[in-house]
Design a protein around this nucleic acid. Structure first.
Lengths: 260, 260
DNA sequence: GCAGACTCTCAAGCTCAGCTCGAAGGGGAG
DNA sequence: CTCCCCTTCGAGCTGAGCTTGAGAGTCTGC
């Protein structure tokens, strides 16, 4: 849990928009912590040990990470988290020039902007917030807006409706991946003319279903036996997946009638 | 290394072209050993333990694998070997209906042709039975029951609730792929204790949503201009997909609160 | 109706990837 | 000089993904 990285004293003002030349390991770690919550200094060193990184050094032996080193590291972490690739395979992907990755500057936004960089093409994101148990990275409002190209008013509306909430941290509001994807989906729906109060339909059915699942798993979830609790959490994940699939199927079935 | 599977006595001649109805674990293991050298009986059992498989049993407790069970197993092994997915993720991919898997039945192949199948291509297979426009193949009740291993009573219940209807043809009742998958999903839910009237929750929310979408697209769908109609149908597919995704996200969001 | 190959469950153990921790010490900016 | 941050190195930890073994039961052919 980035234990070593918790206390960092350098408030080293980044001079607005300039990609700082080279960073120490602690700075890199802090910078990526937003997007990759489980990063840590020891992990970065471990990745170097595994020949995945090779930063240059100060005369005194300190590691110095250039922007491209940082980009490489981001790629590694992304392949690991989203594509589930083992390090051995990531190493090869990088060596063979695949996995070009996003270039994406480490951008200004006073507070270590972890901009995920807009994707466009057919990027297959597998994980994309499917887990109940961990929330994934956090994104600033700007990140979310840029990434989803959503109308800012829409996001405000979603907050008003209580569909998304964000999380205030260091005075700024951050959203997790699920919330970002909700924004994306709602934006898409809006393009077809589904908006505003229509979303209540979705929200209330989700509420009903979650209540149902909670009821079923409540005993196990309240259990004080950690194993049992963990099992219940996993059951919850599976139930969510199956339930969502079922809903989709039922919707298809209904729509088929409409389609004639 | 498949130690237990080395000696198998059943030379049970497959009668040419007949997809053998059901195989024991040893036969399955032997059959897949060609394509997946590190398969083993204990591994197959382990996968079942991890809720990735659920073969039916003989009265004596022996596992019996139907062709679709075997196909599922192949999918699992392929996702593991080629996509490096952890079992936890594979479970979800399967539960949520992605990863439909390779073409049809095991087919004949005198002597396990078992070509490793085309590699390379990142072929993204369309999901099974998610299309509004075509319903896919039809299955008899027996087919459905065997394939999903559902309780016949459950299917009756679903019919009573109007969740599935089937279609009578030549005096027999047939179900389409969507209905079969609904049965599968409901069976899965039943395993966790979600059953009976709880399904009303799902049904009514699907009904509400389809009404919503219908309302929005009604003008275009009623259009006498075939192009316009076609466009509307495609919009319907997209809306269905996005709406389902949104519902899933909202559910996850709710469940996260439950999970604490 | 018995032999022998095959299968069952369940608990314990094993291996490897992927980190984490702690000790002992040195570098760098104020 | 001081205080944090950084270094290496080796041992240790955790969880995924199986394997092994014991003890018992099932199926099939003769």
């Amino acid at each position: 849990m980035a234990a070593e990285a918790t206390t960092v004293h350098e408030a080293s003002e980044p001079d607005a928009g300039r990609p700082e030349k080279a960073m120490t390991i602690g700075a890199v770690c802090k910078g990526l912590a937003q997007e990759f919550p489980d990063i840590s200094i020891s992990k970065i060193r471990y990745l170097e040990d595994q020949k995945l990184l090779n930063p240059r050094r100060t005369p005194g032996g300190y590691r110095l990470y250039s922007p491209s080193d940082v980009a490489r590291l981001r790629t590694i972490l992304r392949l690991q988290r989203d594509e589930f690739l083992p390090l051995r395979v990531i190493r090869q992907e990088l060596a063979s020039g695949r996995a070009s990755d996003d270039e994406a500057q480490v951008a200004s936004d006073g507070g270590t902007g972890a901009g995920p960089g807009s994707r466009a093409g057919g990027v297959r994101k597998r994980r994309a917030s499917v887990s109940v148990q961990d929330r994934g990275a956090l994104y600033s409002l700007d990140d979310v807006l840029e990434d989803t190209r959503a109308d800012p008013k829409l996001v405000g509306e979603l907050e008003d409706f209580g569909v998304i909430k964000g999380e205030v941290r260091a005075g700024l509001r951050y959203y997790d991946e699920t919330e970002r994807e909700i924004v994306r989906a709602v934006t898409e729906l809006a393009r077809y003319g589904v908006g505003g109060r229509n979303l209540r339909v979705f929200r209330s059915s989700a509420d009903r279903e979650s209540a149902l699942l909670q009821q079923i798993l409540a005993p196990a979830l309240r259990s004080r036996n950690p194993d049992r609790r963990k099992e219940a959490l996993e059951a919850l994940e599976n139930l969510a997946a199956v339930a969502s699939h079922l809903k989709h199927l039922l919707l298809i079935r209904d729509l088929r009638k409409i389609a004639g």
